[in-house]
Design a protein around this nucleic acid. Structure first.
Lengths: 215, 215
DNA sequence: GGATGTGAAGTCGTTCACAGCT
DNA sequence: AGCTGTGAACGACTTCACATCC
């Protein structure tokens, strides 16, 4: 084990391993090899071992890794052994879908608030779609509610024109993490962590490689 | 200009440049420097120049790049100078949001079909949310309709348990590109291009860096 | 003068190959 | 015998630094 700086790509792959391990556990598998993990995730076995070695020695030579054990370790490493409290800001179509996104619940994520500039406009539609009443608060209450409900992360699904302004409010509300679904490159103070999840970029990327193929 | 293999990260950044250039154009700016582009996108100026140099010499020494000119070039390079025809498969909450996602229209993307396993179940809700009637077809018609409507790309927003099965149908329907919103590592034949857009991975990543901070 | 384009240097991540443990 | 953990080799991307051209 070496406590070097861990590459961000390694962290991303850890999530992938975690999901596969969960699957293995549900299937009742008890042991997995780096080769098997690598194959399932489309990677090289040495890379899997290197990724894990950043954090300790979890395997047994000649055997492999215990599924349950590795699963728990990775969960802890990723910080998913505690609850993370999310707020969705911007309750348009995407925001509504995110409010409803069940995968968040499987991990230790919990959506504890929803905000919009015009809560009265969206609340009816949202309740309708979700099949239950939903509380959408005015964005002006962000700071107050963030403290009250201990919001850890803001999910930003507002229009691009509002993105920077809302990001500033998020920072102001002492929320340290932003999952940014807008195409805007947010400017935030040091210490605030932003990850971009705008998917047109991914689509553009797909198209680049697609354009050289005949159909 | 060197016609080397272009790194995928470069392609991703090109999308970012494209969006900033559009913004500049709308603001009426005519010229931009690599330093300015770099700053706006949070990168190093040399990197911007290297990225562009993979595809030609678009700049003018001592001046910079003409905004409109570079914009058009990048659009062409990325393959966005023609229309791309999308189908959304799996019309749950996310699928519905994607059907409604206006950003796709700004680029040369056009959603030409929607599929689900139970179209009759979702069609009412979707129409309601979109404020207009929407045609959701049964997944069995994928191959037929793909040919008819010249579908280029399938956007996969089905449950994980169905993902591989549906991906197989997409391949069978001669669609060559998949934007995968499921957490599943899809297995597809060579020549088919898959890009993953599952965002819990990004959230996990955010949390990793967040866990070391006090709140 | 000033910003591009680009070899060369530097940094970072991946893969190899094998020693070491079970 | 088999699979992990890891130095060393390799390859890829980034940044520097400067010659080049407008």
């Amino acid at each position: 084990m070496k406590e070097n700086r861990v590459p961000e790509v390694t962290i991303r792959r850890l999530s992938t391993y975690l999901r596969y391990l969960k699957e293995l556990e549900e299937r009742g598998e008890t042991v997995v090899s780096s080769a098997q993990l690598a194959k399932a995730c489309g990677l090289n076995a040495a890379q899997v071992r290197k990724d894990l070695a950043y954090f300790g020695e979890f395997g047994i030579r000649g055997v492999g890794y215990y599924v349950k054990d590795l699963y728990e370790h990775l969960k802890k490493i990723l910080g998913l052994n505690r609850e993370w409290r999310l707020a969705v800001i911007g309750i348009g179509n995407l925001g509504t879908a995110l409010l409803n996104f069940r995968d968040f619940l499987k991990e230790n994520y919990k959506i504890v608030a929803a905000f919009d500039k015009y809560p009265e406009k969206v609340i009816g539609r949202v309740a309708e779609q979700m099949g239950r009443p939903v509380e959408v608060l005015h964005i002006d209450r962000l700071k107050e509610v963030a403290k009250e409900r201990k919001i850890d992360i803001a999910i930003l699904s507002v229009p691009p024109s509002e993105a920077q302004k809302v990001a500033d409010l998020v920072v102001e509300a002492n929320i340290r993490g932003i999952l940014n679904f807008t195409p805007v490159q947010l400017k935030v103070p040091k210490g605030i962590i932003v990850k971009n999840a705008y998917f047109t970029t991914v689509l553009d990327n797909l198209v680049y490689y697609l354009q050289f193929r005949r159909r």
